[in-house]
Design a protein around this nucleic acid. Structure first.
Length: 429
RNA sequence: GCCGAGAUGGCAGAGUGGUUAACGCGCGGGCCUUGAGAGCCCGUGGACCUCCCGGUCCGCAUGGGUUCGAAUCCCAUUCUCGGCGCCA
């Protein structure tokens, strides 16, 4: 969330930034928030005065009782003041709830380098890597390849679970874990701490890390419990230091999250329905960083570079796009997507999302930093997150880019050591 | 799952119904010193009001309740630590 003090002191700056999103609702929320905050401050001051009155009366009663004098008049007055306090409290609490709601809904301020645009078609390509493979035969899509090689069973997954679930089998099941292992080893070498986080989180913690709409659109809720299945390990990693104060010397905290991800895909009817490109469940290694505010821009580039290196070692052609103001979402101040080349679709598709959330997540979560032990907190830290490798989509790209005319698929060099040193995915005899 | 104990500031730890969260450690500032340290003094949770001086309120795991008044009494929940049971 944004700093309410910034909104009070410099509403023009906030308004100007929010205007770039081309979303009139935002500006209206801002106006309502500013008016409500002003009202709340006045009411809060009044409430404090009333509470002060009550305290005076209470103390008088104590004095009278000590002196063994009659306190009936004071009791009556106390009761009356108490009523006023109660009704004032109710109003203040209502306003506070509304203010919090506005603050949770208002999106982050955008970085100056985010391109202005209306939707994903206006994202700006900042880099292209690799050469698009040429095939002198009819290319197959990933799902036809996988089915023919007996690597995946979608029908039974539909029977047992639902659409958008899958069974991975044989080499592709191994490939899934190989990718995880590969990404993890690379990140560990670069100083990231591997973490297996909880796969479920309570609502309060979840409100700190994500947009409110996600509760309906993406998150699975556990029936009868205050628990949500994680949509990415970014979420439990971000919430790890919830309401804690980090030492400046301990930052940046660099984590490599290891988890399965669960997503409802509620708004995606009809999109990518075949295959394993868009599913309710997939595995992912995630990069996450807590850092000093002045370091986040530099570390954002580091996260991008890490993700790029992984794709380069896998030999997958890709491009990097700077996600524009109309497509960037609530939490990030700046976001790169990496899109890998998908031969069957003849297009680049998203496989990595790399965000600088600045202080927006950290303020919601109360993750602050101090110079050293015992010193007062200086303010919220900055948080960043990026996919390292999401296995589902990476498998799609690998199958399609590395396919042979006979329907077999070459295994990238860097993954072979995790797959019995084999070079090809073939049908098991 | 059952029984018991517990949760207080950055940390440690008092406080068991009557305005002020003790003492310490850490941290910040000042005095002293060539410098550092020691020593001494002041400060050190959050919100709001204020022209500054300053003022008011909130805060003892969370949410309710009792009371004129709750860190303190009652109820529920969460988590931690013991003990028992169950379990991959």
């Amino acid at each position: 969330m944004l700093d309410i003090k910034l909104i009070r002191e410099n509403p023009a700056l906030v308004r100007e930034n929010l205007a770039k999103r081309n979303n009139p609702e935002c500006l209206q929320m801002l106006d309502e928030l500013i008016a409500l905050d002003k009202e709340w401050r006045a009411n809060n001051t009044k409430l404090n005065d009333l509470r002060h009155d009550r305290k005076q009366v209470t103390m008088e009663i104590a004095k009278l009782k000590k002196a063994c004098q009659n306190a009936d008049a004071a009791f009556a007055k106390a009761q009356q003041v108490d009523q006023q306090v109660t009704s004032a409290e109710k109003q203040v609490v209502e306003q506070e709830t509304k203010i919090k709601d506005y603050l949770l809904r208002l999106p982050n301020l955008l970085d100056a380098t985010v391109p202005v645009g209306k939707d994903s078609t206006e994202n700006v390509t900042v880099k292209t890597w690799g050469t698009i493979p040429k095939f002198n035969f009819q290319v197959k899509n990933h799902i036809d390849l996988a089915l023919a090689l007996d690597q995946v069973d979608m029908e039974r997954a539909g029977k047992v679970s639902a659409a958008r679930f899958f069974y991975l089998k044989n080499d592709v099941a191994m490939l899934d874990l190989a990718l995880m292992h590969f990404a993890l080893e690379e990140l560990q070498q670069r100083g990231y701490t591997p973490v297996v986080p909880p796969y479920m989180m309570k609502r309060d913690a979840y409100e700190g890390v994500t947009a409110l709409g996600d509760f309906e659109e993406v998150l699975y809720k556990i029936q009868g419990e205050d628990l949500y299945m994680i949509a990415t390990s970014e979420h439990p990693l971000a919430a790890m230091y919830w309401n804690e104060v980090l030492k400046q010397d301990d930052m940046p905290v660099k984590l490599a999250g290891i988890s399965t991800c669960f997503r409802k895909e509620a708004g995606a009817h009809g999109k990518d329905t075949r295959g394993i490109f868009r599913t309710h469940q997939f595995n992912k290694i995630e990069q996450f960083i807590f850092c000093n505010p002045e370091d986040s821009a530099k570390l954002h580039e580091e996260l991008l570079e890490n993700a790029e290196v992984l794709l380069q070692k896998l030999g997958l052609p890709y491009r990097v796009v700077n996600v524009c103001t109309g497509d960037i979402g609530t939490v990030a101040a700046k976001k790169y997507d990496i899109e890998a080349w998908m031969p069957a679709q003849g297009d680049y598709r998203e496989v990595v999302s790399c965000s600088n959330c600045t202080d927006y997540q950290a303020r919601r979560l109360g993750v602050r930093y101090r110079l050293k032990e015992g010193a007062p907190p200086l303010g919220p830290v900055h948080t960043l997150n990026s996919t390292a490798i999401a296995t589902g989509r990476t498998i799609v790209a690998l199958l399609e880019n590395n396919q042979n005319e006979d329907g077999t698929v070459n295994i990238p060099e860097v993954l072979r050591k995790y797959m019995g040193d084999r070079e090809k995915i073939t049908k098991k005899r």
